[in-house]
């Protein structure tokens, strides 16, 4: 035990909170993947030294308050319209690094048109897509990404595909468009996956710096409140049920 105080010294720090994150407490539920992704974006911004030139577009959903948590410039878009607003910001200020941060209800449901057309035009932006298969903020309603048979507050007996259709794999759809240069699907439920997601985010921001087109980073995440599970259980459930339908890995990677 006496060792501990000799180890806890400033020169021995191997991991600490980045200064790009603000001191505000996150409003997310315990164990929510949003916090981890926020942290990764902050770390990538710090490592690339682009804090002064980055503009984030906050969505509507749980992450609507993202502008409280990262010390960069932000805009907040109407529901689903983050890619349209990101287009405007990037076209007016092409020297800035612009990213949109959206959930599945925002990017894959209400904002489908904006998402598809921004990607089809090949807008030079980064889109970060958090897919937890449910409308978390409004009370756990069924989203287009809800899995077959998965219960939500508007489909308490599970999603019936004969009535509601199959879940949409929006990343696979966007990968077919010529405007996208990089489409990948990652997760943040294990330390290894967190590291991979960070690399993917870094690559997306580098693509933007190289004017390559739209980069989309999908992060399959949990919603323990909406799924009505503990954080640890929800990560296990995600691995067993979400990943077979939403397999991890690069979908498109143009050099």
């Amino acid at each position: 035990m006496s060792d501990i105080n000799t180890i806890i010294k400033p020169e021995n720090i191997v991991y600490k909170r980045t200064d790009v994150l603000s001191d505000n407490d996150l409003s997310y539920c315990p164990g929510c993947g949003h916090g981890t992704v926020h942290k990764l974006i902050a770390e990538v911004i710090e490592e690339m030294g682009i804090q002064d030139t980055t503009i984030g577009i906050a969505p509507v959903g749980c992450s609507v308050l993202a502008y409280n948590y990262l010390e960069i410039d932000w805009q907040q878009a109407a529901h689903g319209r983050a890619p349209a607003l990101a287009t405007a910001v990037k076209r007016l200020m092409p020297e800035k690094n612009v990213f949109s941060y959206q959930g599945d209800g925002d990017l894959a449901a209400i904002g489908t048109a904006e998402t598809i057309h921004a990607c089809n035009r090949g807008e030079n932006i980064v889109m970060i897509f958090i897919n937890n298969g449910i409308y978390g903020m409004t009370g756990g309603q069924m989203a287009p990404t809800t899995l077959p048979g998965m219960a939500a507050s508007t489909c308490p007996h599970g999603r019936d595909v004969s009535h509601d259709g199959e879940p949409i794999k929006i990343s696979e759809i966007l990968a077919q468009l010529p405007g996208t240069c990089y489409v990948t699907r990652q997760s943040v439920h294990t330390a290894g996956n967190v590291r991979k997601t960070k690399k993917a985010l870094r690559k997306a921001f580098e693509n933007q710096a190289a004017n390559k087109g739209t980069s989309l980073v999908e992060v399959v995440s949990n919603c323990n409140s909406g799924w009505k599970m503990t954080p640890i259980k929800s990560n296990e459930w995600m691995e067993e049920n979400m990943f077979p339908y939403y397999p991890l890995g690069d979908i498109k990677n143009e050099e």
């Binding site: 720090i13 909170r17 949003h34 330390a191």
Partner: peptide, 27 residues
């Protein structure tokens, strides 16, 4: 830290913490 002697300072806990409230030291 329930078992401090076993810690190897790998920072897995720090990077996965959604609220980034863990600082990791290694000597």
């Amino acid at each position: 830290m329930a078992n401090p002697d076993a810690c190897i300072g790998c920072s897995n806990c720090g990077i996965i913490c959604p609220d980034t409230c863990i600082t990791v030291y290694r000597a």
